[in-house]
Simulated assay, not measured.
Amino acid sequence: MSQPTLKDRINDALKTAMRAKEKERVAVLRLVMSEFKRIEVDERIDVDDARALALLDKMVKQRRDSEQQYLAAGRSELAAQEAYEISEIQAWLPAALSAAELETIVTQAIADAGVTEMRDMGKAMALIKPQVQGRADMGEVSKLLKAKLSN
């Protein structure tokens, strides 16, 4: 039998959390599953692992932004909820890349794409994105790529 997809594993975890009566975890996993379902309905596709990782990465980023806004507004209880959701969602993402690994990927992509100028940055990003999706902040990747191209 084939490997269960990320979506299937999250759904199984949801069922387990429901049986264990873990209310907070159930709520977060339901948010994730509802996002998958929304994409499937809107775009009439099945969410594969690559798309699931992209969605999870986006959800983490949204929650980080919300957490910062709550902290700035002095709403620590809401910021704590966002932090909990981040930790639950991040558990499904692959391990983060180290700075050295990220630099190696960026350098290799620049060489593979034959990019020498900033205006061709998109070619390198197209090679980098599938390799780092869910494992690195794309904003940081972009900064690193710009720094390498401006030298």
Rank of each mutant, 00 (worst) to 15 (best):
S2C: 06
S2D: 11
Q3Y: 06
P4A: 03
P4H: 05
P4W: 02
P4S: 07
T5A: 06
L6P: 03
D8G: 07
I10N: 01
N11I: 08
N11M: 08
D12Q: 13
A13L: 01
L14N: 02
T16K: 14
A17R: 03
A17C: 08
R19W: 04
R19P: 02
R19H: 05
A20N: 08
A20C: 06
E22C: 06
E22D: 15
K23V: 15
E24T: 08
E24Y: 05
E24P: 01
R30H: 06
L31N: 10
V32D: 00
M33L: 09
M33I: 11
S34N: 15
S34D: 15
E35R: 07
F36T: 04
F36E: 03
K37C: 02
I39R: 07
E40F: 02
V41K: 11
V41A: 13
I45F: 01
D46M: 10
V47G: 04
D48L: 01
R51N: 01
A52Y: 00
L53V: 02
D57R: 01
K58A: 15
M59W: 00
M59N: 00
M59L: 15
Q62W: 03
R64M: 08
R64A: 02
S66T: 14
S66M: 13
Q69S: 13
Y70S: 10
Y70P: 02
Y70M: 08
A72Q: 12
A72F: 06
A73Y: 00
G74W: 04
R75K: 14
S76V: 13
S76K: 11
S76L: 15
A79I: 10
A80F: 11
Q81K: 10
Q81T: 15
E82I: 04
E82R: 14
A83P: 06
A83K: 12
Q90E: 15
Q90P: 07
W92Y: 12
L93R: 14
A95F: 03
A95R: 11
A99C: 04
A100M: 12
E101M: 06
E103T: 15
E103L: 10
T104G: 04
A109R: 05
D112H: 07
A113C: 09
V115P: 07
T116P: 04
T116H: 11
T116E: 06
E117T: 11
E117R: 15
M118Y: 11
D120Q: 09
D120M: 08
D120F: 07
M121H: 08
M121A: 10
G122P: 09
K123T: 13
A124P: 07
A126N: 14
I128F: 04
I128Q: 02
Q131R: 14
G134W: 01
G134R: 02
R135G: 09
R135M: 05
D137V: 04
D137M: 05
M138C: 05
M138P: 03
L144W: 04
A147L: 14
K148P: 04
K148Y: 10
S150C: 08
